[in-house]
């Protein structure tokens, strides 16, 4: 019974989201609203301004370089978070265990 209710709920959710998609301007052409003047600027001036022929790389490291710096700092934060969860308390536990022994 529970499973049937969950399946009905998820199918309803899929239909609702699909109706939302059908109302979106999704045509894969140059007229799509996501293909705006920013993209045209990148494609026309990217090679001259950065020297890189790969526009994705030009945007990652030059036009939006500060964003990528933040990305690397997210990786650094991941290392710090995992180390703070896994390494330090386990050492304390070991020391306590040795003291009890």
């Amino acid at each position: 019974m529970k499973k049937i209710i969950i399946w009905i709920l998820f199918i309803a959710l899929f239909l609702i989201l699909s109706i939302g998609i059908f109302d979106m301007p999704t045509s894969p052409t140059l007229d799509a609203p996501s293909y705006n003047e920013t993209i045209h600027y990148y494609l026309e001036n990217g090679v001259n301004e950065t020297g890189a022929i790969n526009i994705v790389t030009a945007v990652i490291t030059d036009y939006r370089g500060f964003d990528t710096l933040g990305e690397t700092i997210v990786l650094f934060a991941a290392i710090v978070a995992v180390s703070s969860v896994l390494r330090i308390p386990s050492k304390k536990n070991e020391e306590e265990a040795q003291k009890h022994e």
Partner: peptide, 12 residues
């Protein structure tokens, strides 16, 4: 070519 982009790529 491309100035600083290869250096940054090596860092990343």
């Amino acid at each position: 070519s491309a100035g600083m982009i290869p250096i940054i790529m090596i860092g990343i």
